[in-house]
Write a protein that binds this DNA or RNA. Sequence first.
DNA 1: GAGATAACTTGTAAAATGCAAGTTATTGGT
DNA 2: ACCAATAACTTGCATTTTACAAGTTATCTC
Lengths: 114, 114
Amino acid sequence: MTLHRRSPCPIACTLDLLGDRWTLLIVRDMMFLGKQRFEEFLESPEGISTNILASRLKFLEEMGLVEKQPYSNHPRRMNYQLTEPGKSLRPVLKAIAVWGLKQIPETRIPDDEI
Amino acid sequence: MTLHRRSPCPIACTLDLLGDRWTLLIVRDMMFLGKQRFEEFLESPEGISTNILASRLKFLEEMGLVEKQPYSNHPRRMNYQLTEPGKSLRPVLKAIAVWGLKQIPETRIPDDEI
DNA sequence: GAGATAACTTGTAAAATGCAAGTTATTGGT
DNA sequence: ACCAATAACTTGCATTTTACAAGTTATCTC
């Protein structure tokens, strides 16, 4: 969540950008659930609030992991899509999901995420 | 950083436990640098502060990812070691490191981490 | 023209973080 | 025996971030 790098370590740098409880959930929603609109992200069961969602989407855009485009001008509607760097987070999310499924009881892939 | 689960999704649950800027750096230090003692973790270049380190170590222990043992009783010295569930985070850290190296400029694996 | 929807922004209390300083127990040196 | 040093923390407090609710702006549908 900050552009300041604490060290040159790639793990530390990645955590500087993505190390919080919300950012990767937005990426998950885009990558596995095909979500693209502000209101769609709000529907996820974790219940992100609007101000956090707006700030994370802005930051993801600034990082170049997400592209924001108007997909309709009348009315003005926005959509958010993963860029190639954003899509390349798939192995990270995959590894996290595999770990969670194995190590945390009662976790499961939601039906719509398959 | 909280035991409360926002949803049954394994990605969300993993982020509930590990989704912050410090926890996985401690795991990195144990896994790749062989660090085991409180003062060793403090030496890492990211500069974690003592209160945060103590709270994260406690939480990692409560989660069963780390075991704390006295390795000497006179004087009393503690060491921290990864449990099997903790060690199973290796693919997650690997994927994060690969992503960071590829996508974030000027990142590199520190010499002592090879 | 009235209510609904999308995409946000603003305000504020509560929680987490960062930084410095202090604590306790033990040890090694003179 | 005393004194500085070290390990492993804890405490206090200012700053930052988060969570929750409410409000805003533009357009659309009936």
